[in-house]
């Protein structure tokens, strides 16, 4: 009935109510936003040999004036100079786009099948999709190593059915193919669930109406079902695409030496070469690349909420 207004007594500012907002707000400002500012600052500083491996950040607030003059784009210039980094970014994007597409291709039919399943069965199906998600990411990637290794179970399977000779081995492990398998496997629940929730909400009488008006089922799918599930498609794609672009564990464990992904590069710069400023610059550029997808994702979430 009546819309709840700002003067609703429960919405009136009181100390207790301000605390509700202030505590999580300050926490996120301090531990989520502030780190980004720092990463940005450090990406503009020079590598120092001393520990910590960058010139100190807070040498007094008097230094703020010097700050601008000290801005040092060397790290960024270095990134653009070395084709390795550019290739790593492009390769990350390529892998993320292809994986997202594969996820849609596999996830959509699954979500549709779940949404069309008998109502009694649906909660069980949803649980079956969620269950692997509760299992450790690392464990699930690890499980594939045993399967894809040259002397692993897939080779064994092919040999035992006579497809392979005794000396043939599956040459997937440590290639991009293994990375795709690992990504699709790990992210499938993230794709299926938003798609399912969009499809499940859909009014079934719409398809009956389309059919009643003479539209054959396959056409009804493209004209009715698919357009109405687009919010789910966008949500699912963004939820997968963004983290895949920065993925580290999967390319590291399943990919080969030539599998270029920026998450891996960042990790190596940081833990291997201990070049913190460069790692920060890598992160900043990755973040800039992902700003648009993240905005799309947020808008989608706000519409849902």
């Amino acid at each position: 009935m009546a819309s709840v207004s700002e003067t609703h007594p429960a919405n009136k500012p009181s100390p207790a109510r301000w605390l509700v907002v202030a505590v999580p707000y300050l926490w996120l400002l301090l531990f989520f936003v502030a780190p980004f500012l720092i990463i940005f600052k450090i990406s503009l500083s020079e590598t120092a040999i001393a520990m910590p491996p960058y010139t100190p950040l807070f040498d007094g607030f008097g230094a703020i004036g010097d700050f601008v003059s000290e801005l040092d784009f060397d790290n960024y210039l270095f990134l653009t100079d070395d084709p390795l980094y550019i290739e790593a970014y492009l390769s990350s994007l390529r892998i993320a786009v292809i994986s997202t597409f594969l996820l849609l291709l596999i996830g959509y039919p699954m979500a549709l099948a779940m949404a069309r399943a008998p109502t009694m069965l649906r909660p069980t199906l949803v649980m079956l999709v969620i269950l692997p998600f509760w299992t450790s990411f690392l464990i699930r990637v690890y499980a594939w190593i045993g399967i894809l290794k040259p002397d692993g179970l897939l080779t064994l399977l092919f040999q035992s059915v006579g497809l392979f000779g005794a000396d043939d081995q599956v040459q997937i492990f440590r290639t991009d193919y293994a990375v795709f398998i690992g990504i699709v496997y790990s992210y499938l629940p993230f794709m299926v669930l938003p798609l399912y929730s969009a499809l499940e909400k859909m009014d079934n009488t719409l398809l009956e109406a389309a059919s009643d008006l003479g539209c054959p089922p396959w056409k009804a799918f493209w004209k009715i079902t698919f357009p109405l599930s687009l919010p789910g498609v966008i949500a699912g794609s963004m939820i997968c695409f963004i983290p895949i672009t920065g993925e580290f564990v999967i390319p590291d464990l399943l990919g080969g030496a030539d599998t270029l992904m920026i998450g891996k590069t960042l990790w190596t710069e940081f833990f291997g070469n201990r070049d913190w400023p460069l790692a920060s610059a890598v992160a900043v550029i990755l973040l800039i690349m992902l700003v648009v997808p993240i905005m799309i994702f947020q808008n989608q979430q706000k519409k849902v909420a």
Partner: peptide, 18 residues
């Protein structure tokens, strides 16, 4: 009819709206 303000009037008496 709905939207005529009757509920708002009552909610003001109850104190849910000022």
């Amino acid at each position: 009819p709905s939207g005529c303000g009757k509920t708002t009037l009552m909610r003001m008496l109850a104190g849910f709206e000022e």
